[in-house]
Amino acid sequence: MMIAKIHVTLKGSVLDPQGTTITKSLNSLGYDEVRDVRIGKYMEVKIDTTDRKIAEERVTEMCEKLLANTVIEKYEFELVEA
C-alpha cells in the first residue's frame, strides 16, 4: 500500500481571488509581514501497489485526468509507504 500526498494549487500566473482576500484579511489583523497567500487543495490517495514507478505513473495520470484542472492548476505529489 502507498499513499500519494497530492497538493493542487493554481498556476503561478493565475489569479487566486481567495488568496488575495485572505492576504488582505491577515494584513488587517496585524500580520503585516504576510505578502501573499495561495490557496490549494490537499488530497491523500491510498493506492494498492508497492511499485513506486507504477504508482507515480498512475497518480500523474489521475492528476492530469481528474484531480487537477490543468488549464489553471498545477499539482505535485509525494509517495509514502502506508
Binding site: 481571488p17 481567495q18 482576500t21 485572505i22 484579511s25 489583523l29 490557496i39
Partner: peptide
C-alpha cells in the same frame, strides 16, 4: 461576505 473565501462567514466574523 469576503466572497465566502476560506470558509463562509470566517473573515466577516473577525
Amino acid at each position: 461576505s469576503y466572497g465566502d473565501y476560506l470558509r463562509s462567514g470566517a473573515v466577516a466574523s473577525l
